[in-house]
């Protein structure tokens, strides 16, 4: 039973202080670090976990830490995806990612989401996609000063007006990457992008409810599962979420699993959506309960 000495208003103020402290002590997305840092971090461990990390360092030379706030998978996926597009993507992949981003809001609305409640998250997502791919951001569908919808011509299948100078020059890549990193480190936009990735995940679950129902436990419907485990910030993800998001965006994801089970001294790699065409493979490191971004040697 809650004590009446503290009201919800006090609790919220306290939670904001805690959040600020965490924010001050770790970046949402770190600078790249050599994977050898991980070996130092676990040098006391003599078990299979450390062997697996050694295996990781032999194949991947660097990684980025992502804040462990329950959103790490979505955040790691989002940043790594756009970085892959910048560095290894083709013009065709960039266009596909952009077009599906622009078309995605209508699909979510068709799934029953209220447009004005997802609009801000959509705007932020399209903004980072536009930044990475170089396609122009479509105009906002709302007049923000009045909150009144304004008619906007949005045709996802129409050719984006600006032709890209693709492949990008090294200088352009570096510029866009540093802008992306700034956005992924800057709340509330960073959280909005993360939340939109959650919505895209939930949308894919709902569109393919029949398929996913078999993976959902506790007698929940797909909608109930989404409301409880996907559409809520800071709710951690499981493999089925990765299946859904990589399929939703048609992006191949490789997760390198490390844990202390000693059946093998090698890290297990699982590829989700191997045939993905919208981007080069996104590689993530999994340590129990947490995802970071990995870069192959």
């Amino acid at each position: 039973m809650a004590s009446s000495a503290y009201s919800d208003f006090d609790v919220i103020a306290q939670e904001e202080r805690v959040r600020d402290e965490i924010a001050a002590s770790s970046e949402l997305v770190s600078d790249p670090l050599p994977t050898s840092v991980l070996l130092d971090e676990y040098k006391e461990n003599k078990d299979a976990f450390r062997d697996k990390l050694k295996d990781v360092t032999s194949k991947y030379d660097s990684f980025r830490r992502v804040r462990g706030d329950g959103n790490c998978f979505y955040r790691a996926f989002g940043f790594a995806l756009l970085q892959q597009i910048l560095h290894r993507g083709t013009e065709e992949q960039a266009r596909k990612l952009y077009q599906q981003a622009v078309a995605s809001k209508a699909l979510l609305v068709a799934q029953g989401y209220t447009e004005y409640t997802i609009e801000d998250f959509y705007d932020s997502y399209v903004e980072v996609i536009a930044l990475a791919t170089g396609f122009p951001k479509p105009p906002a569908a709302y007049d923000y000063s009045t909150g009144i919808p304004v008619p906007v011509q949005q045709d996802a299948n129409s050719e984006p007006p600006k032709q890209l100078p693709w492949p990008l020059t090294a200088q352009e890549r570096a510029l866009r990457e540093s802008n992306l990193l700034a956005i992924f480190r800057d709340d509330p936009v960073a959280s909005a992008v993360v939340y939109y990735l959650r919505l895209l995940t939930a949308g894919h679950f709902k569109t393919n409810a029949e398929f996913f129902q078999g993976f959902i436990e506790d007698g929940l419907t797909v909608s109930e599962f989404c409301a409880r485990e996907v559409e809520v910030m800071a709710r951690e993800c499981e493999q089925v979420h990765i299946v859904a998001l990589s399929a939703a965006l048609d992006v191949p994801v490789r997760v390198v699993y490390t844990d202390s089970s000693d059946s093998t001294s090698q890290a297990t790699e699982i590829n989700f959506q191997e045939e993905g065409t919208a981007a080069p493979t996104v590689s993530l490191l999994y340590r129990p309960g947490h995802y970071d971004i990995l870069y192959a040697r």
């Binding site: 809650a2 009201s7 919800d8 208003f9 919220i12 801000d120 909005a192 910030m233």
Partner: peptide
């Protein structure tokens, strides 16, 4: 809160209400 809608609003009943999940005195 300033972090809305990422974090929920804080709610208080300012009319007294008898309900198992609402505090009689504070309205929490």
């Amino acid at each position: 809160p300033n972090t809305y809608p990422m974090t929920p609003p804080a709610v208080k009943f300012s009319t007294r209400i008898c309900h198992p999940n609402i505090h009689w005195k504070s309205g929490d």
